[in-house]
């Protein structure tokens, strides 16, 4: 197990290094000089040069890369060029929208998908299975931003139960959760559809295993065998998908945040790209990639701990 974990850890570090180089390189090819963007078209050449110096834009590439990486490792993400505040503070503000939104959506999607998947698998081929599978087909086909628009049309404009957008902050937690509800539902729907399908097929796999037949032969009812043995074993692949979905939800909220005018990480990236605020873009993208890679690593380790066969395989 220790060798397995060590190998995964090594590949984790290598992936992070490779990701940071890729992000840095991509940001470097962006046309447009941030300094001239900040000063406008009428800036004097020497002022421009002085600002470039101050921003470190005149240093050689490897020095800038090194400064960026060591800065991030020590918690210094640099200072935003447009907001004039440390990137850490910006991220700190925004993460308290994006993170709760992702968690909220994940909870909703799990709450919908688990029962749906279990019912579908245990009544395989029946009308309940058919209608649940039909619903998941529809769920994966609906673009979440369109679903968001429909939700706004029904629940914000017609029924007036929720506000159509914006975020009031966490001073009033009930109000904050309420304003995240429609975005979370919009994000959760396609995820729930995918998760329900995975839950169903994973459960069908375990239901076909010999140990289920043994359990039934020992006198357990179908229901008991399902809950005591099948569901537990079926959870392993489902947890992987949940892990992947979490990082997707954190980054994938970008469009939903646009629909609902939520001040989250996605909107921050979007605004920073259009404002050529590269330091924010590279740091936030790196942060998201970091989360994805670490979550995948955690899932791998959890997998290896649960199922010893996997350790030797990879």
């Amino acid at each position: 197990m220790i060798r397995y974990a060590g190998k995964r850890l090594l590949s984790l570090v290598l992936s992070l290094i490779a990701a940071s180089i890729v992000i840095f390189a991509v940001i470097e090819v962006i046309p447009g000089d941030p300094a001239s963007f900040m000063l406008g078209v009428n800036a004097r050449a020497d002022t421009l040069e002085a600002l470039r110096d101050q921003m470190g834009l005149n240093d050689p590439l490897h020095v800038r890369y090194f400064n960026w990486v060591t800065g991030m490792l020590t918690g210094d993400f640099g200072t935003s060029w447009t907001y004039k505040t440390p990137v850490v503070d910006l991220v700190n503000d925004r993460i308290w929208v994006s993170l709760p939104l992702a968690v909220y959506a994940l909870i909703l999607s799990t709450l919908i998908a688990f029962p749906a998947g279990i019912i579908a698998a245990s009544r395989r081929g029946g009308p309940a299975d058919m209608s649940i599978m039909g619903a998941t087909q529809l769920g994966v086909a609906i673009p979440n931003f369109w679903f968001a628009m429909i939700l706004v049309l029904i629940f914000a404009i017609n029924l007036r139960w929720f506000s159509a957008g914006g975020f009031p902050g966490w001073d009033n937690p009930a109000l904050a959760i309420k304003s995240l509800t429609l975005p979370a539902i919009a994000l959760a729907l396609p995820q729930a559809a995918i998760l329900a399908r995975v839950m169903r097929s994973s459960l069908l796999d375990t239901l076909g295993e010999d140990y289920i037949r043994t359990a039934r032969a020992k006198g357990l009812t179908r229901r008991q065998a399902l809950w005591r043995h099948a569901v537990r074993n079926a959870l392993i692949p489902v947890l992987t998908i949940i892990g992947l979905q979490f990082s997707f939800l954190l980054a994938g909220g970008i469009i939903i945040e646009q629909v609902f005018f939520l001040p989250g990480l996605g909107r921050l990236i979007f605004q920073s790209i259009s404002g050529r605020d590269l330091i924010v873009v590279e740091s936030v993208v790196m942060l998201l990639v970091f989360v994805v890679i670490v979550v995948n690593f955690a899932v791998d380790i959890a997998y290896g701990a649960v199922d010893p066969r996997l350790r030797s395989k990879s």
Binding site: S11, L14, S15, A18, A19, V22, V26, V29, I30, P31, S247, F248, L250, A251, G252, I254, I255, G266, I269, F270, I273, S274, V281, V285, L288, V289, V292, I293, N296
Partner: peptide
């Protein structure tokens, strides 16, 4: 294969936005 893993680790939508913005 590791190159594949790397591409998978990037949030696709964010990178697509980045590419089209660049």
């Amino acid at each position: 294969m590791r190159g594949n893993d790397l591409v998978f680790a990037f949030p696709s939508l964010v990178i697509a936005i980045l590419i089209t913005a660049i």
